[in-house]
């Protein structure tokens, strides 16, 4: 590859190679302050589908150690998104060290809160908002559960703010925001670098204390969720549960048996942050 960068996020080292300089320059700005791994666990490649595509209406194909053969290429203007998607893809398809849950996480006082749900449920936005008001952001996309200890390893990648969520972060330091990416396959996206505390403490694990299934756009309500239902929903939220076999089974069963589980419906993000804060105090 003509250009290359290395980025350490929590316990995972990435090498990102690219046919173009621009996506990596954008990554440099977004990941300023992140350590550089000596050895990369995963490689992401941003490639031109055909050689002339590097110059003529350039398209970015996402490659790497693990690939989805039919993934559609993105325009070069969305090169940063391609790099982010490439890192997600390597984790989703290749991660075997930790039980990987499609969930966001925050921590306060050594107690971690996990949030999972369908796309659009608001788990990412909620975690990012909590990360700006006294909580430490562990990650907005993937939660890494240690199969031996049950602890969560932070994975504080840049937060992917989508559509309406973009406007909620107007008042953060502009240096932490990536470029506004319009008309992507997921709508308008802007990336947000987690705050300095989240980056400085990316090696500090936290024990899960509460699991939430948030749901945006419904009247405020909090319900208990049975352990069986929670277990099934988390197997669906995990990209590597089956691959980890009995290690994954034990790790997930332990999580379900040791933390309270609640479904939280909320009409707007403000009330969601309040509800989550109150719930954490009540269950502490």
């Amino acid at each position: 590859m003509r250009h290359e960068r290395r980025i350490q996020v929590g316990p995972v080292g990435f090498r990102i190679g690219s046919d173009w300089a621009a996506p990596l320059a954008a990554l440099d700005r977004l990941y300023a302050g992140y350590p550089e791994p000596a050895i990369a666990d995963f490689t992401v490649r941003l490639e031109a589908p055909r050689p002339w595509r590097r110059w003529l209406r350039p398209k970015v194909h996402i490659g790497g150690d693990y690939m989805l053969p039919d993934a559609a290429p993105l325009s070069l203007a969305h090169g940063l998104l391609a790099a982010e998607m490439g890192m997600n893809l390597q984790m989703a398809l290749g991660q075997r060290r930790y039980l990987l849950l499609h969930a966001s996480g925050v921590e306060k006082g050594g107690r971690a809160l996990l949030m999972t749900g369908l796309s659009g449920a608001g788990k990412s936005t909620l975690a990012a908002l909590l990360g700006e008001c006294g909580w430490r952001l562990l990650g907005d996309e993937f939660a890494l559960v240690d199969c031996d200890s049950g602890a969560l390893h932070p994975f504080p990648r840049a937060v992917s703010l989508k559509n309406a969520a973009v406007d909620l972060f107007d008042d953060v330091d502009p240096g932490r925001l990536g470029p506004l990416l319009a008309d992507t396959p997921k709508g308008t996206i802007r990336h947000l670098r987690p705050n300095d505390d989240a980056i400085a403490r990316m090696e500090e694990t936290a024990m899960p204390a509460l699991l939430l299934f948030p749901r945006f756009g419904h009247a405020a309500e909090i319900r208990e969720v049975g352990q069986g239902e929670a277990f099934v929903r988390l197997t669906q939220a995990s990209t590597n549960y089956v691959a980890l076999e009995e290690r994954g089974f034990e790790a997930l069963a332990r999580l379900i048996r040791t933390v309270p589980v609640r479904a939280v419906d909320y009409p707007d993000t403000e009330s969601a942050v309040e509800a989550v804060e109150r719930l954490c105090e009540d269950l502490a």
Binding site: G226, G228, F231, E246, F249, I256, R257
Partner: peptide
Amino acid sequence: RLIALDGVALIFHRLSGQT
């Protein structure tokens, strides 16, 4: 491997790898 939850039980069947 059997693990009891509230009201149900999880069984990991080692021969098939199924839960």
